[in-house]
Amino acid sequence: MIPTVKDVAKRANVSPSTVSRVINDHPSISVETKKKVRKIMEEMDYFPNATARNLGTQRANTIGVILPPLDSQERLGNPLYLELLNAINETAAGFQIATAVASAANSEALLENVQRMHRQKQVDGFILAYSEKDDPISEYLYQQKVPFTLIGRPAKREADIIYVDNDNQLLGKQATEYLIEKGHKNILFVSNVDQEVIFFERYFGYQEALMLAGLPTHPAVTMLQPEDYTSFPEIIGQTGASALVIIDDIFALRMIQLATLHGYAVPDDLSVVSFNNSIFATLVHPYLTTIDIDVTDLGKLGTEKLLEQINHEPSSGIQLVVPHRLIQRETVRALK
């Protein structure tokens, strides 16, 4: 026999209206009661009628997750976004909320996708999984007053946009300091993006660490076009660099392949520190020394913050929300 709202209410010793409010995540119901009722719903294999629930609340009971424009192989294959999606989906499911993904090959198509989802009321709000300078998607969400949470620090309107983040400047600083502690004096910062906020923050952290140590800083080495890769050995030769701070794990593997192609061994000739501690960090030798940013916690907190907005609960922007840690592996050599 299929259980009903009344069956759940009787077993939980609450009224059927309370069960309905729990299903709709109403703010008038305490966290303890919600946990109690949801546990009983799970035990009884009770599933709310989604159509009836949506009509009653005038909501889609779905949140959208906006991935960055998938305009490169690194972005298309980056496991960070899969980890983030999994954390968001698991957190949303705990509130009986579904998730939908917005993705496209470029910003124009992505904006059209997001606009359609919003105008057709397919979702109640969005989680924007990236932060980029002059991003048309974040501008649209802000101007249209659409509930959204940003994963990363906003490029502007920091006081008005709700966001969750690591301290990316501190990440860049600590990665560079680790190399300095190992005896490296000529260190380069290498990236395949130059408009994302994490690029600016991590590069600023790199500069800060070197300046505080009285060591030379270098312009960021940005690999945006195929011809940029051909200048790699010349840059290494001109700077005398012995170590690289690289924007993320997947691009770090690309740079290690490039270094090997030009006769530089990692870590014997070039040491490498990257970010994210993704599955790629331990797929091939040498294993990457990298900084773990706790993607799961970013996704969980981002989802909770979005649901607070949708439910009109008090909320505020957050910075430096998730701690990080350096994972020492095989890509850094200590110099004498």
Rank of each mutant, 00 (worst) to 15 (best):
A12H: 07
L307K: 06
L150R: 04
Y206P: 13
Y163L: 02
D228K: 08
R75K: 15
N276G: 06
L283R: 07
Q207I: 05
L80Q: 08
N86F: 04
G94I: 01
L306P: 11
L298E: 03
A220R: 02
S131E: 08
Q328H: 04
G64S: 07
I247L: 14
I291V: 15
I236G: 01
I162D: 11
N24M: 12
V322L: 00
P154I: 04
R59C: 13
D228L: 01
K145N: 15
V190K: 00
L188P: 00
N113Y: 05
V197I: 15
S15C: 06
I247R: 00
Q115L: 09
G56F: 03
S15I: 11
V321Y: 10
G299W: 00
R75E: 04
P226F: 08
S315L: 01
S107A: 13
L111C: 12
S274D: 12
L55T: 07
N311G: 04
K39G: 15
F275A: 01
P136E: 05
V245I: 09
T331S: 12
L84R: 07
D292N: 15
I318K: 09
R329K: 13
N24D: 13
I310A: 14
D135G: 01
V193F: 14
D25Y: 06
F280I: 07
D134M: 12
Y206G: 08
N276I: 03
S242D: 07
N13L: 10
I198V: 15
L141I: 09
L76E: 11
D165T: 12
N106K: 05
F95C: 10
Y287F: 15
I247Y: 13
I247N: 00
K10N: 13
P219K: 05
A129D: 06
R38D: 02
T230I: 10
T217C: 11
F275W: 02
V101A: 11
A100F: 10
G94Y: 00
P323E: 13
P154F: 02
L306E: 14
A104P: 03
V197M: 14
A87T: 06
A105F: 07
E201R: 08
T149Q: 06
Y46K: 07
R21W: 12
L301D: 02
A50Q: 14
D292V: 05
K300I: 13
E108T: 14
D124C: 05
Y203C: 07
L111K: 08
I279M: 11
R38M: 09
Y206M: 06
L84F: 14
L320V: 13
S242F: 02
A265L: 01
V123H: 02
N13P: 09
P233G: 12
V5W: 05
L301E: 10
I161N: 04
T33E: 01
F47S: 15
I291C: 10
D167F: 06
V273Y: 03
L320Y: 12
